[in-house]
């Protein structure tokens, strides 16, 4: 199986590579549109700030490629947020795959949310074998509200999308690669789709 992690200079991808290796697969880092198109599975990582990440995607033309992919695609953390319609962070347009506008948590809670929170109302094979209310690891200041594409919910300040899904596209706000056995299971489910 050919797994490609989209390389656009977005933060720490070493942990994702290692998590994939622990599942018995190897992932390749690439920014080459052909290589990305030919992959069986595509992972779209992201750490950092939304508008500068979008700039990098536009500069490399990847913003046009990603929405046209037909194989399973998994966006992680900022990757998921960039797959949405827009983000309040840096007032940027996103890739428009998911019909959601990403907004900031209010000051009623500490921002960023850092740590282990629970997921519920799990849908799609991404969460096969994962029990309701299991803990997953998140670090984020912005979130996608609940939408009809929400496939996992979490609650911090408000109920929000811990994961989104539409056709072949999946996105998790949490880091499966850092979420111990539960995360390993979710990442494994994705790779075995």
């Amino acid at each position: 199986m050919k797994i490609v992690i989209i390389n656009y200079g977005a933060g720490n991808i070493q942990s994702i590579k290692f998590a994939i290796r622990r599942l018995g697969y190897e992932a390749l880092l690439s920014d080459d549109p052909e290589e990305i198109r030919q992959a069986d599975k595509v992972i779209f990582p992201g750490v950092g700030e939304a508008s500068s990440a979008m700039k990098k995607l536009r500069a490399s033309g990847l913003d046009k490629i990603i929405p046209t992919l037909t194989q399973p695609v998994l966006g992680i953390c900022l990757g998921m947020q960039l797959m949405c319609h827009s983000s309040e962070e840096g007032q940027t347009e996103g890739l428009g795959i998911f019909d959601a506008d990403v907004v900031r948590f209010s000051n009623r809670v500490k921002v960023p949310q850092i740590g282990w929170n629970q997921i519920s109302n799990l849908k799609t094979p991404l969460f096969q074998g994962v029990g309701e209310k299991k803990h997953i690891y998140l670090v984020h200041s912005y979130y996608a509200p609940l939408t009809k594409e929400t496939i996992a919910e979490s609650e911090y300040d408000v109920k929000y999308s811990a994961a989104l899904g539409k056709d072949n596209f999946y996105g998790t706000q949490f880091h499966p690669e850092k979420s111990s056995k539960v995360g390993q299971r979710i990442l494994g489910n994705f790779l075995e789709m």
Binding site: Q14, S15, F18, A19, R21, R22, Y137, V139, H175, E177, K178, S179, S180, K181, G183, Q184
Partner: peptide
């Protein structure tokens, strides 16, 4: 750091 990240799946 590299070797810890290789083995450990918590932050």
């Amino acid at each position: 750091v590299y070797h810890v990240a290789e083995k450990v799946s918590i932050p």
